[in-house]
Design a protein around this nucleic acid. Sequence first.
DNA 1: TTGTAAGCGTTATCAT
DNA 2: ATGATAACGCTTACAA
Lengths: 373, 373
Amino acid sequence: MWTKPHPYFYLYIYLVKDDAMKFEAATIKDIAKALGVSTSTVSRALRDSHEISPETKQLVIECAERLNYKPNPIALSLKEKRSRSIGLVVTEIANNFFSQIINGIESIAYDKGYNVIITQTFESYDREVMDVQFLASRGVDGLIISLSTETHDLSHLKALHDRGLPIVFFDRITDEINTHKVIVDNYKGSFEATEHLLQMGAKRIAVISSSEFLSITKDRVAGYKEALKMHGMEPTDELIHYSYYSGMVFSEVEEIINKLFTLKHKPDAILTTSDKITTGVLKTLKRRGIRIPDDVALAGFSNTDIPELLDPPLTIVQQPSREMGEAAVSLLLQMIESKRPIRDFEKRMLSPELQIRASSVVKKKAGKKPSGK
Amino acid sequence: MWTKPHPYFYLYIYLVKDDAMKFEAATIKDIAKALGVSTSTVSRALRDSHEISPETKQLVIECAERLNYKPNPIALSLKEKRSRSIGLVVTEIANNFFSQIINGIESIAYDKGYNVIITQTFESYDREVMDVQFLASRGVDGLIISLSTETHDLSHLKALHDRGLPIVFFDRITDEINTHKVIVDNYKGSFEATEHLLQMGAKRIAVISSSEFLSITKDRVAGYKEALKMHGMEPTDELIHYSYYSGMVFSEVEEIINKLFTLKHKPDAILTTSDKITTGVLKTLKRRGIRIPDDVALAGFSNTDIPELLDPPLTIVQQPSREMGEAAVSLLLQMIESKRPIRDFEKRMLSPELQIRASSVVKKKAGKKPSGK
DNA sequence: TTGTAAGCGTTATCAT
DNA sequence: ATGATAACGCTTACAA
């Protein structure tokens, strides 16, 4: 159906002569010199210290504006012993779930004057270790991380945590490190999706989930199993499958589908629990000419707009990714900015604003029923 | 088809007591003290200066390792008067074209010790100005930017450029600022896509492009027109449409499709020139029950895997986004790191490596022909 | 109310 | 071959 890829585009690159000299920004010293006062006076005036005469303050502020003075963030960092940057470790930027996480994180981080350094693991443990070390060497003030599927050894993170680096886990979390974590109710999500498939008339629901070593997988599969039991069905191992690389490696998904559809009793519905797995299953079914929902009904976790484009529709479980990012970064900044420990587990919850946003997330459902063979 | 969205997910947030003290990293001073030498000796030893005795060097390096010494990047930045960070302005991270641009940029930037600060405009001029100012205030050493669709006034960038801030434009470029630019051959891309539609038997090809003010739009529409002329057809205005927000605002695309399909002579093929427009058109056609390619053939620019999931297939024009990112950042780092002007336009082209990578990009074509009514 | 000086971590320029 | 010192931009005791 697709012709063989062939080389195509040229890159056009315009080069120009570059003889601009480096612009020197105004410093506090320039202001001091211009006004014939000391740098400390300027510093204090700009920070609106109470021990500066209104006139001087006025003068300084005016002069600062005139010179277009901007405090040098690097000098500040050196003084304050903080980089005002936080590290982020995700699987892949080119994934809606994570790009929305990033949006959530950056919106808040930038507001508070923090940079975000983004790194990607592509589900590789080695990359994760590299990323974490890179971030540590850049002197980030804190770390937000979703573990790679390959990660079983957490020593690279433990070491940093022991040294006092604030860390927040999200989505793929771990029990081995005692710090803040942000996840959604994965159990409930897959429970409801499974239930919906049952309501559509499905009798044999298969599940394709991420690596069974991931925390989220356990919850999602548990929700699936519980829904079956609630409706008087017994989960069968032959219908439960794991994609080690969460669908990043397409052939994994393909093989699972192949296995499922060579069973004596083929499934009449499939639950997929990640963006990439959902996409992969769609692709495979299309290739094999298996129709949705006539041959199999489908319910899947997805944060992309792919399923919306497809006919017939499927059930989508959407995660509040942006809100997760916001929550994670808020917690991290809290850890960073308050030296004091968070004392009260109940009271010191998220700010109300954040909680409201968190509940605004949706689940979309498909209406059609499978022909129920 | 889709039931009304309803609130769904909870955010689970685990809070823990945080009583870890801030870890103090080893400095050059610690090494000096431990070894009873001066800081300058340590500094020189670590930088492998020739004027240090081998024994001292040995000692210092050993000690540094023992203390797990890492040079403080912030102190270095302050000294060198550079932040070792570069700013990036894109439309949106959650867009494959840009996330791959980011991949290209980061892979090279990180290797050379630079951070990348990513900002998003969402096609808004105001956001772009904010982003640029934010990046400037963070003291980035350089800027990589793809202009927003709303941007007609370039003074925010001109000011920085005049001050000597290195800037590289990519994709949506401008003539008004004389600096490096990275684009693909948009003309050729849309020329070939149009030609392919013609070969499929299309007689009336419509084009839906981004804002007509964007540089890329001009090239793409020009390629389309030229292909028509080459095949003895005259471009008609009623078949040429522009989406001001490049498909980011879905209703724009919807309206254009509506207009096209209420024409006396409806189009039998459509060329779309951006990710979002392609997606939007697919969605609209699906909603209106217009079949591809039986009712209309489709060719579109896209860097997502969405079209691959759809049946019937369409022609896809793919941009070498990762390579564009690599090219852009290479040029920028060149500008940043060499005070000397780039003298020779011809010789100082990209490194060979980069050129090779740039040609590895593909175009995929659909095979089916429209029923050609 | 304002100025002086020390310090953040590092390197470059002098001396020694 | 090594050490002392100043400097990068800024804040903050401490003095005045």
